[in-house]
Design a protein around this nucleic acid. Structure first.
Lengths: 189, 189
DNA sequence: TACGTCATGTAACTTGTTACATGATTAG
DNA sequence: CTAATCATGTAACAAGTTACATGACGTA
């Protein structure tokens, strides 16, 4: 009786992203896809096709389970929840050092090659980027104002606040760098 | 005589990364792989397997060409250079707005889920990350000191300096954020 | 003798994107 | 009547990683 117990290799980072959303409340695949756009989507995104596939893997590993409710559409709707093992796996994963992924930043790559283009054209492109970052910063600042300071550690909202603060810092850094590029690209007179 | 002229769709971002390195001088695939580790690798990386494959596509699109020199090893060594079309394609690409890629940041995801882990353990992990960022910042600062201020616009070294400055700003932002996390995670007494 | 560097490539796999496919309910 | 939202999935593809495979030359 060589029972084929699943090898259950550790989930991908996407798997943990899903677990992290599910830790805040039960969701359907559809809800998860929506959550992975905003605000979680600011640091991890996925399309619904990828999410449904990953949910099947997580279920095979018994980290999530679902309850069916009928409708709407041809298939049943599946409301997923964390299993106790799922919660434990997530807890453990949080404190493990993140695996480094190589930076891949197209704007920086363009800056690297900017010496051979027309400064005026490069400038226009960076001005657009600056505007986009300023807009996003304003959005984050509005969001931050809606928090009355940082929530307590054990509160799920602490997670939201921490990520928001990171986004805020990132946009400020980007804005500063874009402005530096613009100042170098002339026409600051 | 339906001559199958290649469709020559625009290269991937990796393709342009290769063109950007090649614009600074002729290289073999091996040299490119080395360059894509450091310092270009700070904002775009690729393994040699991917680079060789991409070079073949770029050659099919006639954006690069090579000259063979014999040895070492079983195959000839191929020294690649930009074609005039390759240089033009790169120039045009530089000033086009970068296509947004979704942020995927594992450390921020961990922060998002940090509310359900033990603060002490989370703290240890963030302290490690802080140290890593401080080390990298120091490295960048040494590198910056070796420039005597920003090079002129038309100088290839302008590209290096611009990317370095972005890296500097990024590391400072990360350090600040890690310190904020640590301050929240207690034990600041 | 063994290891590191130079140099090329292929194959299998994982991750992520885009497009296809279905269908009920509700708001305009 | 039409479009958006809710809800599930598959298939084809592009991008990226890891491992395999070869082999000369120089150094320890």
């Amino acid at each position: 009786m060589t029972s084929t117990t699943s090898p259950a290799s550790t989930p991908s980072t996407l798997g943990f992203a899903i677990l992290a959303v599910l830790a805040r409340g039960n969701r359907t695949g559809y809800d998860l896809a929506a959550a992975m756009r905003r605000p979680v989507g600011y640091f991890w995104t996925a399309r619904h096709s990828q999410i449904h596939a990953e949910l099947q893997k997580l279920r095979a590993a018994e980290l999530v389970a679902y309850e069916s409710e009928h409708g709407p559409g041809p298939q049943d709707k599946k409301v997923y929840h964390l299993t106790p093992e799922g919660r434990r796996a997530l807890r453990e994963w949080v404190t493990e050092p993140p695996r480094e992924r190589p930076e891949r930043d197209e704007l920086v790559l363009k800056a690297y090659a900017s010496w051979l283009a027309e400064p005026g054209m490069v400038r226009r492109m960076f001005a657009e980027q600056l505007a986009a970052h300023e807009e996003r910063l304003a959005e984050y600042e509005r969001h931050e104002a809606s928090f009355g300071g940082p929530p307590a550690l054990g509160d799920p909202r602490f997670g939201n606040y921490a990520t928001l603060l990171c986004g805020l810092g990132y946009e400020r850094h980007r804005i500063e760098w874009c402005r530096w590029m613009l100042s170098r690209l002339g026409e600051d007179a």
